[in-house]
Design a protein around this nucleic acid. Structure first.
Lengths: 334, 334
DNA sequence: CGCGTTTACGTCGTTCGTAACGATA
DNA sequence: TATCGTTACGAACGACGTAAACGCG
């Protein structure tokens, strides 16, 4: 049994049981791949694939188990390589971050600018997607980090570290009646206007609806979008009152922002990564730049935890920063 | 990086950093081992060993991390091999059991006899030792199972499955005054006699002493041994009253047995094995022969648990059998 | 001078890529 | 006939073992 054989095995499985496609991804010849698989099957004396004629039809049940073990083997081999790079303080590589629009547009720019000062030779990839897509991307090793809000249940196999909390902000055009409001904004007042807000891909939306329902109200959501910039555009058009994450409020906006703190439950943004992965040094550092309380030592403690409940326990008495709009740096919540 | 390199690395570490010794264990030449290590260090661009002149002085901190990862890699490779053997229903191999004298002498013979009927081609190795020694032996892969009572804390990295519970039995010579006892035996009565019992290597002894202390008594232990047969010999000599595990009472004995149920806290015997190991089919079967409630499905559930607390939860509502003496099969506790 | 490691070198097995062949849709 | 996998074969590479040199106690 060789690492090469296991690598070939996974490549075949990950390329739809097509040996030719696998061999191309592996930058090697197709007969070589075939032969190594045959050798592996002979050594184990075990059929890994069901064959239909000459081509591979499916992975046998036993094969699935071998595949699973092979994945952890190759992951550990990768980890050894990463360990070596870390101790050498190697400062180049790639950082692939997957996140949502709000983070990418309003929160990350400043973090990434500081990151680049430290690591000019690390190539950055920014991927966007919904929580579900991010979960898949981490699983498929396409991204190193997922940064998202809510939907912790989607990321069952990841370490999820809370980064900061945030409230929602109400956006209205300057001439809107809510812009001239004297007292604090109430949820009843909001319910009397058409609303423009996010299509939440997870439990977020219902938490907003729940806040209305708790008062016996039904919000009049006339328009939803995934993207705060799109929402703002429609608010400017007078289509309704915008409800966006506070981070998405830019002081340069021509819209009037009304703090909605207290009206809706506070949200928490998480950063997540595969538990079984050794992080490159610059990855840990990125996390600390993004959320200063995530020191290297703390991250190590979280990785040592057996599962997410252990991680949650560590953060039980950590005060998370609260993040507002206008490019404001995180401030203390209390 | 090759599996061979990792295997050589571990062999060197496990042979006191002596490359020559390692190469002999590996049935290969010493220069070959040296070269592979050098290649590994070059590929990772990382010093794995501190050198003192030509020979290896110690493992570098980074090297320790690599060693740890390499161990899990080779463990998984082994697991793949085991998986293959299991699906082929291969019925030969080795079963190495580590246990204490009482199990080996009074409980296991019958289990092993039945096991041999099923698996005549599995070589059996029976190792004996204290709980501490057994823990080390499992860790060093010298035994597959440890069967022991108490001392769960010693086996931190193992899956520990409870097998049965047992009480203690009091043994006295036929002519002893306690042999003519009418009513139930009390702890006061015991305290009035010199006692002969086990040297418990773990918390067991104190639990016995505690039972006396709870009544404000101090037991007069005149002789201790690790071995029920030795204890019986000294009881026959009239040296004192014997307190042994119920399993150790043989109906053929010329001693009178008095049930001590209720006098002392009940003990539980466990079977433990490394969590990260795939069990050969005959190993699971052995467990079921030893403790019939440990079905394959249950063992699988326990392996899926993240840690021992998860395993304990599974057994919270499992009724363990109670085991008495005279080669008696386990009977229900209630 | 013995012990253990490294260097040097010839042999052998393995992997690789190319090319030809076979089966399937 | 196009696609995909297997078989065949020569070239290159890499691991192994032996032998000899080197350092250290």
């Amino acid at each position: 049994m060789t690492l090469r054989q296991l690598r070939y095995l996974l490549a075949i499985v990950d390329n739809g049981l097509n040996i030719t496609a696998a061999s191309e991804k592996l930058y090697t010849s197709q007969p070589g791949v075939s032969k190594q698989i045959r050798l592996l099957e002979e050594e184990l004396d075990l059929r890994l694939f069901e064959r239909k004629g000459r081509s591979l039809a499916s992975v046998t049940p036993a094969g699935e188990e071998v595949v699973a073990r092979a994945r952890t083997v190759l992951q550990e081999i990768d980890n050894i390589r990463t360990l070596a790079l870390n101790t050498r303080h190697e400062a180049d590589g790639t950082l692939a971050i997957g996140t949502t629009h709000t983070q990418a547009r309003y929160v990350l720019p400043e973090v990434i600018a500081r990151f680049r000062e430290h690591y000019p030779n690390v190539a950055l990839e920014l991927h966007q997607g919904t929580s579900e897509q991010l979960a898949d991307m981490v699983e498929a090793h396409q991204i190193d980090f997922a940064i998202a809000t809510g939907g912790q249940d989607l990321f069952a196999d990841l370490v999820m570290l809370p980064c900061y909390r945030w409230d929602r902000t109400i956006l209205v055009p300057r001439e809107h009646e809510l812009a001239r409001l004297d007292g604090p904004l109430t949820i009843d007042a909001l319910a009397r206007h058409p609303l423009v807000t996010y299509v939440f891909s997870f439990s977020g939306e219902s938490s907003l609806k729940k806040a209305f329902a708790a008062e016996g109200l039904t919000p009049d959501v006339v328009f939803t979008a995934r993207d705060a910039d799109v929402i703002k555009t429609y608010v400017r058009m007078g289509m309704g009152v915008g409800i966006v994450a506070s981070m998405a409020h830019d002081c340069g906006d021509d819209l009037v922002a009304i703090d909605a703190e207290g009206l809706f439950p506070r949200s928490t943004t998480w950063i997540g990564f595969r538990r079984d992965t050794v992080l490159r040094r610059y990855m840990s550092h990125f996390m600390e730049l993004f959320a200063p309380h995530l020191t290297d030592a703390l991250v190590q403690r979280c990785l040592a935890a057996a599962d997410q409940s252990g991680v949650d326990a560590i953060f039980r008495d950590v005060d998370l920063p609260l993040r507002g709009g206008c490019g404001q740096a995180p401030a203390d919540a209390d």
